[in-house]
């Protein structure tokens, strides 16, 4: 058995919705069935084999090669298995993912991990805006699971995030953790303006002092035992966070404009 591999034949202009190509959906399907699956692209419906060379037979292990930022909804709603993406991913990578693992070697576009409820999403690269955020109309962003980003994230990362862990090794844009409801976001790099705007609950862990707006208020410097617990739980993750073992932080709480039980912890 070898990984079921989709190799993009050539660069494409319109985005393609590849949500159908998940381990759960493809389990038990023949290559000819898979080849004929229609994918939405613009207003067209394109057969899988018109876009991809298909090889391999193990639908539990899916690989996208030569992938690009035009492939949206990779791993959407997946409940099992593993998807490896080489090249890049479009928007909605791991959308409403429940279980399993996605590894992206490359950059992803907006709404990565939106609505994700479980599993592991590992991006070796950057992601766009609205990482782990809710799509318009929804009231909750990411609801569980672990997201690891080795690069940078765009604006509004973690907007309305409800649960789960996001560890970002690079920098994050403005309004990081806006309206965050719960969960944990760690950032090794810098964060932009208005971090934690409208934050209700949850934890944002920073290694560099951020620029704070007035309704995030200083609660002093503390040694928090739960951080040891947290870092111990990260110790097996393939992330720079695995090596951290510090629990002395300055604690800022807020956003008191909006309930205000969230915290921004900055390493001392």
């Amino acid at each position: 058995m070898s990984a079921l591999t989709f190799t993009l034949k050539q660069a494409i202009q319109q985005r393609v919705d590849v949500s159908a190509l998940t381990p759960d959906n493809l389990a038990g399907k023949s290559l000819s069935d898979i080849a004929a699956i229609p994918l939405d692209s613009g207003r067209l419906k394109l057969r899988v084999d018109s876009l991809f060379d298909i090889s391999g037979d193990n639908a539990e292990e899916i690989v996208f090669n030569n992938a690009s930022g035009k492939l949206d909804y990779i791993g959407s709603k997946m409940k099992s298995g593993r998807i490896t993406v080489n090249g890049g991913a479009g928007s909605y990578l791991g959308f409403q993912m429940r279980k399993g693992e996605i590894v992206l070697n490359g950059n992803a576009d907006a709404y990565t991990a939106s609505g994700m409820a479980g599993g592991l999403l590992h991006v070796h690269g950057n992601v766009g805006d609205f990482l782990a955020a809710a799509i318009p109309g929804d009231r909750k962003g990411m609801k569980g699971g672990i997201v690891l980003i080795t690069g940078n994230a765009g604006e509004r990362a973690g907007d309305q995030m409800r649960r789960g862990i996001i560890l970002i090794e690079g920098n994050v844009g403005s309004y990081c953790a806006s309206r965050m409801l719960a969960g944990t976001i760690g950032v090794l790099g810098s964060v932009g303006d208005y971090v934690g705007y409208g934050m209700r609950r949850g934890t944002l862990l920073l290694t560099q002092p951020p620029k704070l707006h007035a309704t995030l208020q200083d609660c002093g410097t503390h040694t928090l035992p739960f951080l040891s617990l947290m870092f111990k739980s990260f110790s097996n993750l393939p992330s720079k966070f695995a090596a951290i073992n510090k629990n002395r932080v300055q604690r800022f709480a807020g956003d008191i404009a909006n309930d205000g039980k969230g915290e921004i912890l900055v390493f001392k």
């Binding site: 503390h222 928090l224 739960f226």
Partner: peptide, 20 residues
């Protein structure tokens, strides 16, 4: 109070006079 979930287990943090 706030809670945190690590490795599928939920932990509660309750503010008290010595810390948490």
């Amino acid at each position: 109070q706030t809670s945190k979930v690590f490795n599928g287990k939920r932990y509660w943090r309750v503010p008290v006079m010595d810390g948490e």
